[in-house]
Simulated assay, not measured.
Amino acid sequence: MMVGLALGLLATIVSLNSGHGFNALRAGPWTAWPSVGGGNADPYARAVVARSGEAPLGRDQGLAFIATADSTGAPLDGACEYAVADPLPPARFWTLSLATPTGGLIDNPTGRYGFSSVDILRREGGGLEVVIARNARAGNWLSPGEARKFVLMLRLYDTPLDVEARPDPNNFPAIVKLKCA
């Protein structure tokens, strides 16, 4: 009985620390949990949301994607520099920001935590690129500060993205490692 209790407790802890429950939607390095903000969220997703205190987007509001790794699958590292480049899935409005692995703001010298579809600088032709690096860059630059670990959050508001079909990773921004210190 004790072994069963211990295994059940261990399985619950692993489930609560490995995302937002079941039915993850993956597109390359980006992952979303479309059912978290709805009434049909599984018990593990509800427990994660209750524990974190976050207010997830409802499916009719949009989708929040998180990337913990670059496009090659290597974990994001604050000592490295990255370029996040278009394309972006269709959405009326979007935001791209840095956060701690638990979803908090990263303390950085600029006080800038992300960009949105209205304040990003675009290249000729409408494309975009955001550089993530500790040292300042011209253009769209975000600093991870002194954080060694961070995540990228892409929120798509009022998006027609079909969550029942698997989205094409080529329609999501690539996260390319430029160099490491």
Rank of each mutant, 00 (worst) to 15 (best):
L5N: 11
L9A: 15
T12C: 11
S15T: 10
L16T: 10
L16D: 01
G19V: 05
G19N: 07
G19L: 07
F22A: 11
A27H: 01
A27G: 01
G28W: 01
P29N: 06
W30V: 01
T31P: 02
W33K: 08
P34Q: 13
G37W: 03
N40T: 13
A41V: 02
A45Q: 04
A47T: 05
A47S: 12
A47K: 08
V48C: 05
V48M: 01
G53R: 08
E54R: 14
I66Y: 13
A69M: 11
D70I: 03
T72F: 00
G73I: 02
G73N: 06
P75D: 05
D77S: 15
A79R: 15
E81Y: 00
V84G: 07
A85M: 07
P87W: 03
P89K: 06
A91H: 04
L96P: 03
L96T: 03
G104W: 00
I106M: 06
I106L: 15
D107N: 10
D107C: 06
D107P: 00
N108P: 04
N108A: 02
P109A: 08
G111H: 09
S116V: 01
S116H: 14
S116K: 00
S117E: 08
V118D: 15
R123Q: 13
E124T: 13
G125K: 06
G126V: 06
V130Y: 03
I132A: 09
R134C: 09
W141T: 02
W141R: 05
S143G: 06
R148F: 07
K149D: 15
Y157Q: 09
T159S: 15
P160K: 08
P160D: 00
L161P: 07
R166M: 10
D168Q: 09
I175G: 08
V176H: 07
L178R: 14
